[in-house]
Each structure stands twice: as structure tokens, then as C-alpha cells.
Amino acid sequence: MSSPWYERLQSIPKPAIYATLILVFLVPLIRPMGLPLLMSENTRKAYEYIDALPEGSIVFHSIAFNPAVDAENWPQMLALVRHYMKNGLKIIFYPTMQEGGMYAERIRSTYAAEYGYEYGEDYVILPFKAGGESAIAGLKDFWSFMPSDVDGTPLKDLPLFQGFTDMRDVDVIVPCTGSSDGLFYVSHLNAAYGTPIIMAGTAPVLPFIGPFLASGQVKGAIIGLSGAAEYEILAGVPGQATGAMDAQSMGHLLIVGLVLIGNLGFLYGKRVNGKNGQNGRRS
């Protein structure tokens, strides 16, 4: 005998859930729905801060992500970099994850030419340094820690570094990350020099940078794919994030729908049987 409907609502098979999710993602990607895009205060603050920097200001863009999270971080990085280049800002890329350098190389090989950016003069790629937090703390002694760029060229020979004394000359640090690397910049460089920080992070980054946004140590934040889409619109730079937002909206709606369905069965079952749902686990 099959189980009653309210129990079935609580135990929809995972394959069915996954298949529905694929459908829900695919349809809006093939046929965009044009859902409205919200503009968050954090993204607006980030945009306004970067936009107000005078031409020639130095942005220290840290790449602390890998392909695991690049669905969110790469569109953010691209929108930011295009905005820097549009406004004539100098960029120092610093990968703190092994794979990070490859995204900087992508900028060099494909996107720098869009704005006529010259390597060495307008932007520089620093080599990856292992060590996580130490690789960020080491920046405080910049010249002994970072003598050359990714190609092995001494930094003192590159035009961008003429007159550069140390990290105090950086106008803003932008960690692009799916981890807590951004906070190491807060504790080591913002705390030491007061260098402003704009965070670009995946969605789970928002909850833990909240206290630092509130304290003003982080000036603004671009969070998740939605943050990237918002930034693309604010900066007027085309990108891939805006197009993917409908799919994300529908994904969220599906999760909420499933939660409601599960609870409908659970609460009805509780009323009928006077017992807890079958999925109650410890923790």
C-alpha cells in the first residue's frame, strides 16, 4: 500500500528534485523572462567608491578564487576590471590561490586590449604566493616579499611601480573571493594602513563580512551573481551575470516552493498522527 499523500510530500525523491532544478535553470537561460533586477545598497556603495577614484589611482585586485566558485567571482571580477579600465585606474593583480593567476592571464590575453591597457604601465600581475594569510601579511613588507612580477621581471623596472613605496600607495584593495581571504586584508592591511576595502564575494561571504560593512572597514560589497549583475548595470559594462539572473531567481523560487510543500505534508501529518516528521535529525 502506498504511503499517504502528506508523507509523500515530505519525501520527494532526490532525482526528481534535481531534474526539476535543471529544468528550472535551463528554461530562463534559453528564454529569458526579464525579471526585475534589484539594486543592493552594498553594490551601489562599491560602485560609487570605485567610480569616484581619480584617474591613475591604484587598485590592488586580489584573486582568491578558483573554478569552484568562478561562476560568481569571475563575472564580478570582469565587471570590476572593465570599470577600472573604463576609468583609467592602474591595476595590480595578486593571486592568493594557485588558480588565481590564470584569471589574471585571461585579462592580459583577452580583455586588456578592449581598453588599450598596456602591461607594466597600466596593470601588473604579481606571482601566486602560497601560505594563505601569510601571503597577505607579507605584503606589509612589500619590496622584500614581492620583488618581481609573474614573468620574473623586477617590479622596480615596471613603469607602474615607479614611485611606489609600499602598500600605503594603494588606493583601494578589492579581494575577489569565495573564502575569508578578504578578511585577512582587513586584519593586516586595513588595520595597519587604513587602506579602504571593497569586497567581491560569493553569496556565503555576505553574512560574515556584515560586521565589517557595519564598522566601515569594508566600504562596499559585490555579493554573488546578483552583485555582479548589479555592478554590470551600474558601471555600464556588458557581462554574463545579468543574463543568468532569471535562472537564479527561478532556482530560489523552486527551493522556497519545495520547502513549503515539505512543510505542508509535515504539518498535516503532525495533525493527523500527532507525531514529528520523518526527517527530524539531531544537530
Partner: peptide
């Protein structure tokens, strides 16, 4: 101690 991952572990594990 990574606060950003705590909700996920709490949701999926028996003890966190």
C-alpha cells in the same frame, strides 16, 4: 569556525 559554512553543516550533519 567559518561562520559562512556553519548553516550548511548544521543543516546536513547530525552534530556540528
Amino acid at each position: 569556525a567559518n561562520t559562512h559554512q556553519l548553516p550548511f553543516l548544521v543543516a546536513a550533519c547530525d552534530y556540528t
